[in-house]
């Protein structure tokens, strides 16, 4: 509920191999995804990933402003990742984006762009807004996962979705999908995004200490995790159209 009572847990993984939130090492947090939640946006997604709550909205393709940013043969993809003031235990001061948000916006854009047929709409812009309403570790991967579905929901032609999740090193073990405590007190964190069809990696960052072997198994685990995320994305898209009654008269 608040930052007043944060303290470092003694152990992040117990003697039975269970993590602090009761998960197994290779288990994702529960994920719920809803497509088409904002009426004004061309495409939108609301995602709950563990205790993360994320909104992604896509506007476009649209006319580009200012005009000089226009590209003659393709669309300009712009991403904005931001955290709402109440999203973190300590209030996040509103205002211009901080250095972390600027960097994340850039890597998120680069994770999404390879999946889009950007040459289809020359001289236009596509704006992707990712708003973190509640953060609990892994917001960038949650943001990418939501945004790629929001892009598809906007009807933008794509080669594939982009699925993302993080892996990390906690109490010496490689684990899937870090929660906020593991993120804060673990030994390493590695967010990964892929285009699932060909398993092309579009985001890869790493913080911490990994041996070569650890890195290898972490990457494999991340890709397996992304494939599970892909199934959830697929389901969410199909559900949007299933929810409305399809009767076969």
């Amino acid at each position: 509920m608040s930052y007043f009572f944060r303290k470092e847990p003694e152990k992040l993984i117990d003697e039975n191999g269970k993590r602090i939130d009761g998960r197994d090492l290779y288990e994702l947090r529960p994920i719920k995804m809803k497509v088409g939640v904002l009426k004004n946006a061309n495409g939108s997604v609301y995602l709950e990933w563990g205790e993360n709550k994320v909104l992604a909205a896509v506007y476009g393709p649209k006319e580009i402003h200012p005009k000089h940013l226009s590209l003659p043969t393709k669309t300009r993809l712009r991403c904005k990742y931001s955290m709402s003031p109440f999203s973190t235990p300590e209030r996040k001061k509103p205002g211009p984006p901080d250095r972390r948000s600027i960097e994340l916006s850039k890597v998120i854009r680069e994770a999404l762009e390879p999946a889009i047929f950007i040459e289809k709409y020359p001289k236009t812009a596509i704006d992707v807004f990712i708003e973190i309403l509640q953060s609990a570790g892994g917001t960038r991967t949650a943001g990418i996962t939501a945004a790629s579905v929001a892009l598809a929901d906007a009807g933008i032609p794509m080669k594939d979705l982009v699925s993302a999740c993080s892996v990390g090193k906690v109490d010496g073990k490689i684990v899937l999908d870090l929660n906020s405590l593991e993120d804060m007190y673990g030994e390493g964190d590695m967010p990964v995004a892929i285009m699932p069809r060909k398993k092309k990696i579009t985001l890869l960052q790493l913080d911490g200490n990994f041996t070569r072997e650890e890195f290898k198994s972490a990457l494999k685990l991340a890709i397996d995790g992304c494939m599970k995320i892909y199934e959830i994305q697929r389901e969410a898209i199909l559900n949007r159209y299933k929810e409305q009654k399809i009767d076969l008269i």
Binding site: G43, K62, A154, G155, K159
Partner: peptide, 26 residues
Amino acid sequence: VYSAVIGLLYRNKKSFKVVPLKGRYL
């Protein structure tokens, strides 16, 4: 051949088509 959009896939004996469910006007 792969779909580029969220759409409805229709098939007949010879070919198929994908009708998008959303998208802006070109």
